[in-house]
Design a binder for these strands. Structure first.
Lengths: 107, 107
DNA sequence: CCTTTTTATCGTATTTTTACGATATACGAT
DNA sequence: ATCGTATATCGTAAAAATACGATAAAAAGG
C-alpha cells in the first residue's frame, strides 16, 4: 500500500493521536459486515469467548479467527488467553480516539 | 462478499438508518489513506475540482479517479459535472448518519 | 498418558483492491 | 472543424482480502 505521505503525520488536528495510516487501518478493519458485528457484539457483552463469536456468525471458525486477527491488528480489540480459550474485549482507548477522529472528519 | 444476515437489518438501534452493509461499505471506503485525505481536503474546501485532488496526491490521475469512484459508490461524496470538469463535494447527510453509527458503536 | 475442547495457523482457491499507462469522452476555446 | 484540457474508463499486473478445510498447539479432564 502506498503511503500518502512519507512521514506518518497526525491524521487530525485535535487531541486524538492517530496518524492517517492507523486511522485508515481502523476504518478498513470495520469495512466488513462480519467485523462490525463482532464489535457490536463485544460492545454489548463487555468481553466474550471466541467460540461465542463463532456461533454468532455464519462463517467457519478459521475465518472468524482471521477476522479477529484483523481487528486485533488494527488495535480495536484485544484477546486475553484464559486456559484453552481466548476472551476478546474492546480496546476502549483506541475506540475513543477513533471516534474523535471520525468526529473531526465529519462534524 | 458474504452477507452476514440475509435481511439488511438496521445496523444500529438509534435514529440513523444505515444498515450494516452500507455502514461497512463506508468504513471500507475510508480504509485507505488516500481516500481519507480526499475527505479531509473536501471538508476544508467545501467542494473542489478533481484536478485539484490529483495534484494533492502522489498518485496517477486514473488512480485518483478510481478512489473518487469508490467514495462516490459509498455515498460519501458526489460529483457535479461543470463543463469539462467535475466538482466533488461531501455528502453531508451520509457523513452525519455515518458519524451517528460510529457513535453508537464506540461511545 | 490419552482424549477432548478451544483457538490459531497453514495451505490454497477465488475474488477484490490497488496501481499504472493508454485511450475514450466531453466540453470550451480558437 | 480542430485543438487542448479535464476526467472517466479500459486493460492489465501485482498484491491483498476472503473463505474454507486441514492441521497444529495448548490446556483441562479422564
Amino acid at each position: 500500500m502506498i503511503q500518502v505521505s512519507p512521514h506518518p503525520e497526525k491524521a487530525f488536528s485535535g487531541s486524538n493521536n492517530l496518524n492517517i495510516v492507523d486511522f485508515a487501518r481502523i476504518c478498513k478493519a470495520l469495512g466488513h459486515p462480519a467485523r462490525v458485528r463482532i464489535i457490536q457484539h463485544l460492545r454489548s457483552m463487555d468481553g466474550c469467548i471466541c467460540g461465542n463469536i463463532v456461533e454468532m456468525l455464519p462463517l467457519a471458525q478459521s475465518t472468524v479467527s482471521q477476522h479477529l486477527k484483523c481487528l486485533k491488528n488494527a488495535g480495536l480489540i484485544q484477546g486475553n488467553v484464559d486456559g484453552p480459550r481466548t476472551c476478546y474485549c474492546l480496546n476502549k482507548d483506541v475506540l475513543e480516539r477513533f471516534r474523535q477522529g471520525i468526529d473531526e472528519l465529519t462534524v
